[in-house]
């Protein structure tokens, strides 16, 4: 058979493509469960971390997460942490290169942040990507929420006026975080979401497992 002929070429490409795609799907299949599990644990751990619950091992995360009332469809969570009710909600929005996705936790009166956690982002590693670093996230713990929202600005941190420190050199990411967080706070304050959160909190009080 002529190696440079059309038939041979087509058959060759077909076989090669088939073989590699087959191998890929095998690998994918073999790890898909693990990847899914990783994602689920990452998600649960993020919710807990936003709410200020410490849980490091997989077992701890599962155990602690089971104590939280959650509405996975709406991305709403309610928990009783250290005797007070804490709400958490998914937050998402667009950053510099792509979406930013995470969780925001607030007190039941929606006047104070409890914490934030970023699950996924495509910000520049080492630059905008620093929103994942503890110093950035810790600023939100017990930060009062001003009525007109918080401000994220590099080098001008002032908790009294609701200004948290942004990332120097990553203005776009800082601005994105500001608008994502403020939008999520707005959503927390909307009547439907508040009602749903209160329902979840009530489930907690009645000891209902979710």
């Amino acid at each position: 058979m002529n190696k440079e002929g059309t038939l041979y070429t087509v058959v060759f490409i077909f076989i090669v493509s088939f073989a590699f795609v087959f191998l890929l799907s095998m690998t994918n299949q073999a790890t898909i469960e693990r990847v899914r599990l990783n994602e689920e644990i990452a998600r649960q751990s993020a919710v807990l971390s936003a709410m200020g619950v410490e849980a490091t091992t997989v077992e701890e995360i599962r155990e602690e997460f089971a104590r939280i009332a959650s509405d996975e469809e709406e991305g709403l969570f309610a928990g009783r942490i250290d005797g007070r009710t804490v709400y958490a909600k998914e937050m998402s929005g667009s950053g510099l290169w792509g979406g930013i996705f995470g969780f925001l936790a607030v007190t039941a009166d929606i006047q104070t942040f409890v914490g934030i956690e970023i699950v996924d982002d495509n910000e520049t590693p080492g630059l905008g990507g620093r929103i994942n670093e503890p110093w950035f996230k810790e600023q939100f713990e017990s930060q009062r929420i001003p009525d007109d929202g918080i401000t994220v600005r590099a080098g001008e941190a002032d908790p009294e006026r609701g200004i948290v420190d942004g990332i120097t050199g990553a203005t776009a990411t800082s601005n994105a975080m500001q608008s994502i967080i403020n939008r999520t706070v707005e959503q927390f304050r909307s009547p439907e979401i508040r009602a749903r959160l209160e329902e979840l909190a009530a489930q907690l009080a009645s000891g209902g497992e979710v």
């Binding site: 890929l24 690998t27 994918n28 790890t31 990847v35 290169w97 792509g98 996924d120 495509n122 990507g129």
Partner: peptide, 19 residues
């Protein structure tokens, strides 16, 4: 393959490296 392996066994790093 590298991407899948990182996602499955080093999720943290996979997240850091992003795209």
């Amino acid at each position: 393959i590298v991407d899948i392996v990182l996602k499955a066994y080093l999720p943290e790093i996979s997240r850091n490296l992003g795209p």
